[in-house]
Design a protein around this nucleic acid. Structure first.
Lengths: 132, 132, 132, 132
DNA sequence: GTGGTCTAGACCACG
DNA sequence: GTGGTCTAGACCACC
């Protein structure tokens, strides 16, 4: 498995969706390829400190979409890949998230420089954690 | 009052939060100033085709935050801008939004500098609109 | 959870505020600590013989203040104590209550020293109860 | 007229009740005696910066109780006095107000010394204003 | 099971 | 007229 899950409790997006989206995106980006193995429901739930039902819900949704295939007793595998994001589509997918964040910040009375600083700080923190 | 409310039913963000955020942002951007009158609960409910309770919920949340002041029998007014939350609290409230955005970006394969650039670009666009 | 809710319908203070204040005070007095579980919305509504929405309103106000944390599908928990409001804001919120008390006292012919003494006496009584 | 009205907007007790209570108490304390003249509705409304209707409501309630008598075209006068508060009754009437204030303060996380300080400060401010 | 949102409609208090 | 509270009951999302 070539990528790490990150979830943020306290976000408005439910946890099961965060998990599902990360798999979908990783597949679309080519970071996950057909046949790659995903962590088991229990293992991922333990790692992310969430309820196993939550992971199961994300996986079952992905399975219904054909993104992954669960093979009884063997594990969870990435299904046949179908499409990959273009650069334009990548940006089209990120902008709403950026705008939503900026809206929250403005509503809280943040000034633009402060927003940039906070983003930079959280990015640094993330990279640091990855390095560890 | 020089600004219009608009809501989108069917969005994942609840209506009462859409209303509240629009007021918060309008105040932060200077489009609403201290003493400005907001539409009455009933009037706004009628205009947006929602239940008056929904508007009242948005207003009461804003009132507790000090963004607006409701005067019984008179109406709803924009309050004096003041720092209600401690710096730590403001950051605590923004962080989930920032992290969610970063998670999406990382999953989409964005590199840190790219993320910062995109944020800066969207912020610039916002300031532009503010000047207008 | 070592404490009991009780409300008085017929009081001028609304039920949802009575519930909220009891939680706030219990937390401030140390009777409720971080991580403690509060009764579910439905359970408390049933016990107090009020509409679940009324309890939900109290809880959502507490959640926005950070006093409690609601976890979807799991329940309601006491949050970490932290300073949410700036010193100025805390004072701004208390002043009306202080002034109302002073107004009553002055109208009753109390002299300033007497007022301070009475306040001190009631505070002492409160601390005593806290120790118990 | 031997006494000053004080109202606190932002308090939970409605303005018309604050006005009424102050007259009732002044009469019961002997600060206002039968035949004393009260300010006109308009004059008091102007002085307190409130809606004349609010003063009128307080006065009409007092008139119904016989505490005051409005004489068309002449003014508003204190009616026949009936009873005066004993010391015990004075305290019995103030304690709930003190306790309510203390409860608010505790709910806001104030510590006892802070409460005493704030009370002292507001008292000083009141006396100062009176001296002016 | 949990909490969150919304509607509909009633009643009250205030100005 | 205004906002505030409460009830009843529905539907949804999450765990």
């Amino acid at each position: 498995m070539a990528f790490e899950f990150h979830i943020s409790t306290g976000s408005t997006t439910p946890i099961f969706r965060q998990i599902g989206d990360q798999v979908r995106i990783a597949v679309a980006m080519g970071h996950l390829k057909e046949g790659d193995v995903l962590p088991s429901v229990r293992a991922l739930a333990e790692k992310l400190l969430v309820n196993p039902n939550t992971v199961a819900k994300a996986y079952s949704e992905l399975a219904r979409e054909g993104v992954i295939e669960t093979q009884h007793g063997r594990g969870v595998f990435v299904g046949a890949t179908r499409s990959v994001y273009t650069a334009a589509e990548r940006q089209r997918r990120l902008e709403p998230a950026v705008d939503a964040m900026i809206n929250s910040a403005v509503a809280l009375g943040y000034r633009p420089e402060e927003i940039e600083q906070l983003v930079a700080r959280r990015l640094a923190r993330l990279l640091e954690r990855k390095a560890t």
